[in-house]
Amino acid sequence: MHTIVLATQKGGSGKSTLAIGLALAARQAGFTVRLIETDPQGTLSNWQRRRNNDDIVVEPIYHAADIQPRLKMLAESGLQLAIVDTAAGLSAATTAAIRHSDLCLIPARPSVADIEATVSTLSVARAWKRPFGFVLNQTPIRGQRIDNAANALAEEAALDLADVLARPLIVMRNDHQDSLASGLAVSEFAPNGKSTEEIRSLWRWIETRLELSAGNMLIDQVMSAADGMLHAAAEISADEITTLAS
């Protein structure tokens, strides 16, 4: 199982809408997905209550000590992908989620306040040596502000822009908020829209970054289960031999 965490200090950066959009994009790409909510504000839980479809489960986990054991159980159950939506600020739960992530996505709007707010999240990801990437979210369609923000993020991470900035940039459109209010993902609300195209492209960027393949993950899970069955059978045989010898 792979775990993706969306985290940043600044509120209103669009973590929840990105988490929902990516969850549906991953499911449509053939992955089994669970949304995990560590934000007591409950944006994901409220979204699920407005939803008529139960194909994506939202699981609230608010205590830091519960995150690692639950992720372990989900991995053992055969789940392929967990996407964790965190609260604004830096809490014990957010730190725990980042610590056990395979990729920490740090959303930021193209503003000075948002970019400055990424510092603490970046520090946690680096402290635990977790892969990370910035997502420029709610951007205007074009303009110098986007380039300035992207360059500032690269300078902050002390890495080349191509190494830290997820593609594509996510443009600010009403589709994201309208779909959230309807209990839908943007790919369900406007399946042929530009916002949907951007979210699906962002998911493909993540797939490449993590070298994901739904088919390969399924094969790995089958082989792991087979290894477990062989190990159990070997233990039974050993017990039988011991019994007969006695």
Rank of each mutant, 00 (worst) to 15 (best):
H2W: 12
I4H: 00
I4K: 00
I4T: 03
L6S: 09
T8R: 01
Q9Y: 07
Q9L: 06
G11L: 05
K15Q: 06
K15N: 10
S16E: 06
L18D: 04
I20W: 04
A23F: 04
Q28Y: 10
F31V: 05
V33Y: 02
L35H: 08
I36D: 02
E37Y: 03
P40C: 02
G42S: 10
T43G: 12
L44M: 12
L44Y: 04
N52Q: 15
D54N: 15
D55K: 15
I56M: 03
V58S: 07
E59S: 08
P69M: 00
K72E: 04
L74G: 03
A75F: 08
G78K: 06
I83F: 01
A87I: 02
G89P: 05
G89D: 04
L90I: 11
A93T: 00
T94W: 03
T94P: 00
R99F: 01
H100E: 15
S101R: 04
L105W: 01
P107Y: 06
A108N: 02
A108F: 03
V112F: 00
E116L: 10
E116K: 10
E116F: 04
V119Q: 07
A127W: 05
K129S: 01
R130G: 04
R130W: 00
R130H: 02
P131R: 03
F132L: 01
G133W: 00
G133C: 11
V135M: 07
N137F: 07
A149G: 04
A150F: 00
N151V: 08
L153V: 00
E156F: 01
L159V: 00
L161D: 06
V164I: 01
M172A: 15
M172S: 15
H176Q: 13
Q177A: 15
D178F: 12
A181P: 09
G183P: 05
G183Q: 07
A185D: 09
V186I: 15
V186Y: 12
S187K: 04
E188D: 14
A190P: 13
P191T: 09
N192I: 09
N192K: 11
S195M: 03
E197M: 12
S201Y: 06
R204G: 05
I206F: 05
I206H: 05
T208G: 10
R209W: 02
R209G: 02
G215P: 11
G215T: 15
G215H: 14
M217V: 11
L218M: 12
I219L: 08
I219M: 06
Q221L: 13
Q221H: 12
M223S: 13
S224W: 11
S224R: 13
A225K: 08
A225V: 08
A225Y: 09
A226K: 09
A226T: 12
G228L: 02
A233L: 13
A234E: 09
E235R: 12
I236V: 13
I236L: 13
A238H: 06
E240Y: 11
E240T: 08
I241A: 14
T242C: 03
T242E: 05
L244H: 12
